[in-house]
């Protein structure tokens, strides 16, 4: 019964072919380290869902950011849970993406023909770190404010163009309402869009080139 409907759907969409290409791939005998990419993908999805939920009550303005986060924590049902998941999964995602990169590095999986996969991976790592950096400011509490003051100051030490980078990040010389809104825009629109697009390319390449095998001794 179900298969009849699936074949009808497949006739019109080719969905079975897509499913087989994505999920019924031939893979070499691998180990648990090879699950770290999927774990990264899972954590990213968790961040998208909990992040969208947080945006329902969060307000990116100096007048209300702190109060709106307080409201999420104490006034909204399960607000503490949603924020807690977003908070912890953020740190976990940085860790897992990094471990995934180490696995690829130590297995030499970045070599021909997977160089582009590696390069898109580098973009993903940087964008993930950018998510952490921009997200940290949003609660607009003391820790957030000073961490961003320090972080942007470090970026400002680049020779020559440092001052420009500092102003571009802060939207002026000091941390202000302008900084908060541009960090917010980067955190919820720009970086997620980059990550989403690049994950698409990354996974396309993983599927198209297949997974590399665990290197043998002395290989």
């Amino acid at each position: 019964m179900a298969s009849k409907w699936i074949s009808r759907l497949d006739e019109r969409t080719g969905i079975v072919g897509v499913y087989k290409t994505v999920f019924d791939r031939k893979i070499p005998k691998v180990n648990w380290w090879f699950t770290l990419g999927s774990a990264s993908l899972f954590l990213f999805s968790v961040q998208v869902v909990t992040g969208i939920l947080l945006s329902v009550y969060y307000v990116p303005s100096p007048d209300h950011a702190y109060d709106s986060v307080q409201y999420i924590m104490t006034g909204v049902q399960f607000g503490w849970l949603i924020r807690g998941i977003h908070h912890w999964a953020a740190s976990l995602m940085v860790l897992v993406v990094f471990l995934h990169m180490l696995r690829v590095f130590f297995y030499g999986a970045y070599k021909y023909p997977r160089e582009i996969t590696w390069v898109t991976g580098v973009v993903l790592l940087l964008a993930t770190l950018g998510m952490g950096f921009t997200g940290y400011l949003l609660p607009w509490n003391q820790k957030a404010y000073w961490a961003t003051t320090v972080g942007t100051s470090i970026a400002g030490t680049v020779p020559g163009i440092g001052d420009f980078i500092l102003r571009a990040l802060r939207g002026g010389t000091d941390l202000s309402a302008v900084t908060l809104t541009r960090f917010f825009a980067a955190h919820v629109w720009m970086l997620p869009l980059v990550i989403l697009t690049v994950i698409g390319i990354h996974l396309y390449l993983v599927i198209r080139n297949g997974i590399s095998a665990v290197p043998k001794d002395h290989e």
Partner: peptide, 15 residues
């Protein structure tokens, strides 16, 4: 585990 709290979270002000 995620879906039920999410619904409560969204409906919270109405409840």
């Amino acid at each position: 585990v995620v879906g039920v709290p999410a619904l409560g979270y969204l409906a919270s002000p109405a409840l």
